[in-house]
Nucleic acid binder design. Sequence first.
DNA 1: AATAATTTTTAGATTTGTCTAAATTTAAAA
DNA 2: TTTTAAATTTAGACAAATCTAAAAATTATT
Lengths: 216, 216
Amino acid sequence: MQSFTEENYLKIIYHLSELSNPVQTNAIAERIQTKAASVTDMLKKLSEKGLVDYVKYQGVTLTAKGKLTAINIVRKHRLWEVFLTQKLNFKWDEVHDVAEELEHITSDLLVERLDEFLEFPKVDPHGDPIPDRDGNFASLSFVKLSKLKINEGGAITGVSEHSSPFLKHLEKLGLTLGKKIVVTEIIDFDGSVELKVDQHKINISREVAKHILISK
Amino acid sequence: MQSFTEENYLKIIYHLSELSNPVQTNAIAERIQTKAASVTDMLKKLSEKGLVDYVKYQGVTLTAKGKLTAINIVRKHRLWEVFLTQKLNFKWDEVHDVAEELEHITSDLLVERLDEFLEFPKVDPHGDPIPDRDGNFASLSFVKLSKLKINEGGAITGVSEHSSPFLKHLEKLGLTLGKKIVVTEIIDFDGSVELKVDQHKINISREVAKHILISK
DNA sequence: AATAATTTTTAGATTTGTCTAAATTTAAAA
DNA sequence: TTTTAAATTTAGACAAATCTAAAAATTATT
Ligand SMILES: [Mn+2]
Ligand SMILES: [Mn+2]
Ligand SMILES: [Mn+2]
Ligand SMILES: [Mn+2]
């Protein structure tokens, strides 16, 4: 059994693994809001528990055991986010912090019953896929809205930024999950994108466009 | 803000206060599965935080602030127990341990929405009253089944023992919340009680009878 | 009232997760 | 290839929560 803190490390390492492998000490320190020295201490411990492969100065990789543990935490996090939005009327920018706490509740029965209660959702409120009990999940195909050319479009299937200000901004613009959009213009001056949603046109910054995921 | 551990102490002190006031160090140690020395350390800390009034060698009492904090934890615990039984089909003997973890989730919005989602339940699966947001709750009147005389009866409104073996035993006997019973005989030999439920008669030990609460 | 038994507290150690400051290693620049 | 800069690790300290063993205070018994 892992502590609250150990679980957080595993989850962070799992997420960072998608960006670079092995994962570096400083990258973890930044994400977890702690100092590199503390990360080193923890990596040694996780290594001794057989949850990560750690080479001094080189970085860490999750072992099979570590990866399964991490995915299970992600599963719980996302299921709770679905619960909060679907059953308790939380907005998609309000769920993350609470889910950060709920994901550490240790009851397999609870997770399975929750999954059932929610009718086995496949994605969370931000479009991220929910792993099944065995850690498997379909990797959805998508492109960043910022990569689309004029007249290209599709449905919003996810976001790659989960901060409350960003999500609230999208909501105000009517850019929620499932909405269909078409790029109508790309402004030379600042790279901002004009697009059509719900019959009318809006303009979003390039920075915003980079974090919206589209499936065609 | 209190730590997980501090919250557990406050809750235990709150429950023990109903039995004796002030609460003694050893009583806390026994309940919380720790040593008296650790309790002393924690009592000093809670005292400094203004959550308890603590007099060396005499025991502790909750301050108004400490009591409110404790009641809020109890509120969360019982709401989660209702959620688990009503929405996730947990049995009444399966909810306690999970609720012990869930009660520490810190989100006022979550608690209020959960309360609403459950349609503002007044009691938990064991018949214990659920405090409202301000810490108020009706104190239900009841008598122990073991105090009833022959031909006296009423409805089962609660239990004063929450262990899984006890609750499973009651369930097997058909003695669940709301069931109406009448005492038909009290056996001289061992003090065991014969009673009528659902048209048929059963015999329960005095020990069991002591933990069943009846309202007339 | 003196003695014994019980309860509680103190003292000092341990574990976990963290920190700062200094040392070491690796990567980049001159 | 030195030198410099950046990243990482070590060393030593700290706070929180716990423990054991011993001392002190309270309560019960003679
Ligand atoms: Mn999240
Ligand atoms: Mn999410
Ligand atoms: Mn309970
Ligand atoms: Mn209960």
